Simulated scan of single mutants.
Amino acid sequence: MKQKLLDEIEIYWDKRAESYSKVNQEELLSEQETLWRNEIQARIEKNYPRHIPKEIKVLDIGTGPGFFAIILAKAGYQVTAIDYTKAMLLQAKKNAKDYSKEISFYEMDAQNLLFQENSFDVIVSRNLTWVLQDPNKAYSSWTRVLKKKGLLLNFDANWYAYLFDQEKQKEYERDRENVKRLGVEDHYLGTDIDAMEAIARQVPLSRQKRPLWDVKILEELQMNGIRTDLSVWERVWSKIEKLNYAATPMFLVEVVK
C-alpha cells in the first residue's frame, strides 16, 4: 500500500514537473526571488552571525524545479538539493544551469536521507511535508543530518485541509469565487485536482492541525529551539498567491538543533 501511494505521488509530480517549473521560472524573474532570499538569508545570518555564505552548507529537501537551491546558490551558499522525482530534478538542473557548479543534485527520498549525520548547517523545504507518507520519519531523518546548532526552515501550509473540515471547505470555495470575480488566474485549475485530492485523502497531514502537529513531533525528537511563524505568507507571497490561497496561509516551522 505504501509503495502504491508513493508511486501515485511520483507520477503526479512527474506530470506536473514542466508546468511547475514555469511557475518557478516566473518567481525567479519577479520580486518573489528577492522576498524569499531576504526571508531565508535573514534567518540564516541570525543563526550564523560570524559566518559568510560560502562557509555554510545548505540542504534543500524537495527542491522541485530548484527555486530555493538557485536563490541560495546565487547568494553564495554551498547547496545540495534533493527530490524524489526524476522529472523535477531534470527541470531543476535546466533552471540552475548558470549555477551548476554551486549546486549538487541528488535523487533521494526525503523520508530516508542517505547523508551522514551532522552533514548540513541549514535545511530548507517548501510545500513538501504535507504530501509525505511518513512525515514523522522525515523529521527524524532531517534532524539527524543537521549539525548541532544547525537551522531547519520548513515552509508549508494546511493544503487540502478543506477535504476534512467544513469551515475550510467554505473558505476554499470563497477563494475560488474571489479569484473568478477578480479575473485572477486560479492556480487550482492548472492542476489535476482530482488526482491531488485523491493523494491528499491518503497522506496523514491533511487531517492534522499544523503547525501544532509539527511542534509536537519535533519536541518528541528532543528539539528545543522550535519556533513557528504564522505570518510568513504575508511577506513572501505574491498578491495572486494571497488571493488563491487565503484559506491556507503558509506557515514556517523553524528549528535550531
Results as ranks from 00 to 15, higher is better:
Ser206Thr: 12
Val203Ala: 11
Asp194Trp: 10
Glu197Gly: 07
Asp175Lys: 06
Ala195Lys: 05
Thr191Met: 13
Tyr188Phe: 14
Arg181Val: 09
Ile193Cys: 03
Glu197Arg: 01
Arg210Thr: 10
Ile199His: 00
Glu167Phe: 01
Glu171Tyr: 04
Asp165Pro: 01
Gly183His: 05
Gln202Met: 10
Leu205His: 04
Ala198Cys: 10
Asp165Gly: 00
Glu185Tyr: 14
Glu177His: 10
Glu177Tyr: 11
Arg174Ser: 12
Glu173Leu: 10
Val203His: 07
Leu189Asn: 13
Ile199Arg: 00
Arg207Glu: 04
Asp186Asn: 14
Thr191Glu: 09
Lys180Tyr: 03
Lys180Pro: 05
Ala198Trp: 13
Asp165Ala: 01
Ala200Pro: 02
Gln202Arg: 15
Lys209Gln: 08
Ala198Leu: 14
Gln169Lys: 02
Met196Ala: 10
Arg201Pro: 07
Asp192Arg: 02
Lys209Glu: 13
Val179Asn: 00
Pro211Val: 07
Arg181Pro: 05
Gln202His: 09
Asn178Tyr: 06
Pro211Ile: 08
Pro204Gly: 11
Ser206Tyr: 08
Arg174Ala: 14
Asp194Leu: 15
Val179Glu: 03
Arg210Ala: 00
Asp186Val: 05
Pro211Leu: 11
Ala195Ile: 00
Arg210Cys: 02
Leu182Asn: 13
Ile199Val: 11
Asp192Trp: 08
Met196Ile: 13
Pro204Phe: 07
Glu197Ser: 08
